[in-house]
Design a protein around this nucleic acid. Structure first.
Lengths: 221, 221
DNA sequence: ACGACTTTGTGAGCCAGTTCACAAAGGTTG
DNA sequence: CAACCTTTGTGAACTGGCTCACAAAGTCGT
């Protein structure tokens, strides 16, 4: 477990930010150390799973005591690549895009939004929050100027693939897609889809309903 | 595979809305029938997996032809419980909450937002889109009046658990949580967390980086 | 009516991820 | 300093989900 570089399983990677979130909350309360069982409780996962997850990043807790809160947080940040700030561009400024542009949660957690882009002439040039909307054609210039690697796509479905292609062409290597459609990206580009209505649809299945087996009604990852 | 009621695996349930989305797109183009391989391609999954998923809902395709598009869509809708419209209330009208309130994607897909709720006196009484913001204290009344079962929580972290408890008290049985914190809900209430910054953090791990193993750079569910 | 072709539905094997349970490691106390 | 207590790190068993591959079922052209 430390040959070359240990490979972290996808399921673990998806949970590391969750642990980090809890650790940051603990840090704000000046808690110096935390046990796996307590941290697992905060993160809403099983303690054994948490320990196994942490073992993948070669983390050192102290037996009998637990983990150093700031220490472990730093290790997770390093592993995820969060040790430096990642500027983000938002593409598509409909309702959702505008909200995401204003959403403080991104900047607070290391993803400042540094540019906004759209194609609609009615939107280009207007100000949203403290930024001016640029035209999609300027994307390549913006990406280079701000060294942006991450794009949030919030365009209509019809435009999403073309916009995505253009963003990758401009140098984007990491895409968070809010358009409810499947995007194709070349090898070497990271993509994550987020479909808000789809989440509600999943919830609906688990919502208790009459005349249906409802044993499996519970919370889910 | 049809004794009593077949139980659908969680992984399958999470994909059904994805299939439905593709089917609805096909339907708009008046495509009558689709093969598993084509549908799988559209949904971005493996064809065998798609067929196994559909087999869980006892769906009948025709060998040599494929699936009837409207038919299969209806079956998935039924299985998920989407055969009737589910009104939703948004709680917490900061930046994100306001955007979600205006987001057309919910109403379009069967989840009309029928009420907005906040505690801030500066917000209560103001209009957002076509709705007036009500006070959190009115939640129980609203839930009963509109027969709302689903709440979207978009409050700050500090308020989220209390608000969630209150919503459940008021009769909510299905919660989509945008506050970046773990919520506890009683048995019988369905909960799904959505943490937008967390998605970016996961992306960051898979984004190609120098001086790091980067073999596993690809798209992920 | 029959043969060629397409595509489904699924058994079997496989792989990843989860849980269990415990030995080893460190701290702490008398 | 030794016995005790807590908590980690992990091997081993297990579970669920994924993929493969193919027989069965159906269509379509002739």
């Amino acid at each position: 477990m430390d040959v070359g570089e240990p490979l972290v399983p996808a399921a673990t990677v998806a949970r590391l930010p969750l642990y980090l979130r809890s650790l940051e909350q603990l840090g704000e309360d000046d808690v110096a150390t935390v046990s796996s069982s307590r941290l697992a409780e905060l993160a809403g996962v099983n303690a054994a799973k948490l320990r196994k997850d942490l073992s993948h990043l070669g983390s050192y807790g102290t037996r009998g005591v637990g983990y150093q809160v700031p220490n472990l947080a730093a290790q997770i940040r390093y592993e995820l690549g969060l040790d430096e700030v990642s500027p983000v561009v938002v593409i598509g400024l409909g309702n959702l895009g505008q909200a995401l542009a204003n959403h403080a949660g991104f900047g607070d957690r290391g993803f400042p939004i540094v540019a906004l882009v759209d194609v609609d002439p009615a939107k280009v040039g207007t100000r949203i929050g403290s930024m001016t909307v640029a035209h999609l054609d300027d994307l390549a210039r913006i990406v280079t100027a701000h060294d942006v690697q991450t794009a949030i796509i919030a365009t209509p479905v019809g435009a999403a693939q073309a916009v995505c292609d253009q963003a990758i062409e401009a140098g984007i290597v990491s895409v968070l897609n809010f358009a409810p459609t499947v995007l194709q990206v070349p090898e070497g580009v990271a993509l994550r889809p987020v479909d808000l209505a789809l989440e509600l649809q999943i919830l609906t299945y688990y919502r208790p309903r009459v005349g249906r087996r409802d044993e499996n009604v519970r919370l889910l990852g």
